[in-house]
Design a protein around this nucleic acid. Structure first.
Lengths: 145, 145
DNA sequence: GCACTAATACTCGGATAAATGCTGTCCGAGTTATCATGG
DNA sequence: CCATGATAACTCGGACAGCATTTATCCGAGTATTAGTGC
């Protein structure tokens, strides 16, 4: 499994937004990309894709920025990935095409699908709220040392 | 999850070889690529990569060809994929780099790793012998209809 | 103090270029079985 | 019948071109806040 840079940046940005979900003011672009060392011109397009997917909302004008469009409990990593990398096609398109005429290909295709869905299951089970909670749990753990 | 064509072809070829594992004669290149509609010039390189990985063996000369180097029970899909796509790096290299300095990134990186390993677990648990067995089981099921 | 205007900071979104990787082809070289030929 | 050589079939492996995707940048345009200016 290999993530594109877009997906990584999108997830990092989403987590950053989830951390500030309680604040009134939207989070500026600079805040996000300074925290994550991401080229800002690039991040703009990624955030736009997240906006089109209904994951983030934006506020224009001075002191504008971005915020989560929905509560962090309802946004999964899978969703972020799909929003940025496009709809997840079949993992093995060539094999899938052969599957109709060749039994071996069909069996193989099922195996690839099983692996893909095992991965998707994890990604769908992980929400932004989970990630923020884990991060805070670790912070507290360090505090007690 | 998206497989490259190389990986798909490699797996199809490996299954084909696994089906003929009991025969004495090696399987010719034409036999494989005619069965799977794969450009033969391309398949050569893929088989070479599988050979370097110790998954298939080759016999040169006339009436030469390819065969499995090991028993089908010991060859997993994960291994085939690694042989062809190169060693599986970390799923999220950029996030991994940030993980050292940023707790959010570390948590996120763990989530990506969890998804990757869930997928790897399935792929490592599926051997060529499994696939051939499933294919034959389906063939028998059709026979009884 | 108030209305109006200019400047500023930010998002929106397409166009575009550079880089990278994937797909597939070509060519020459090496290797072995098979067949033909001559003794 | 046997030895020798030619031929055909096959693998080996690098080089390379075409193409698609990914990554990243640039620029103009729209929008809201803020500051400044004149009345």
């Amino acid at each position: 499994m290999r993530l594109t840079a877009r997906t990584e940046y999108a997830a990092l940005a989403a987590v950053e937004l989830a951390r500030h979900v309680d604040e009134d003011a939207p989070v500026g672009l600079r805040t996000i990309c300074e925290a994550q060392q991401v080229p800002s011109r690039f991040l703009v397009h990624i955030l736009l894709e997240l906006k089109r997917a209904g994951i983030v909302a934006s506020v224009r004008g001075a002191s504008g920025g971005y915020r989560l469009a929905r509560s962090p409990e309802t946004v999964t990593l899978q969703e972020i990935r799909d929003a940025v990398e496009g709809p997840s096609e079949t993992p093995a398109p060539l094999t899938a095409e052969l599957a109709a005429s060749c039994r071996d290909a069909a069996v193989l295709c099922d195996a690839w699908l099983a692996a893909a869905s095992a991965q998707a299951e994890i990604l769908e089970g992980t929400t932004l709220a989970d990630l923020v909670a884990r991060s805070r749990a670790q912070a507290e753990a360090m505090y007690y040392i």
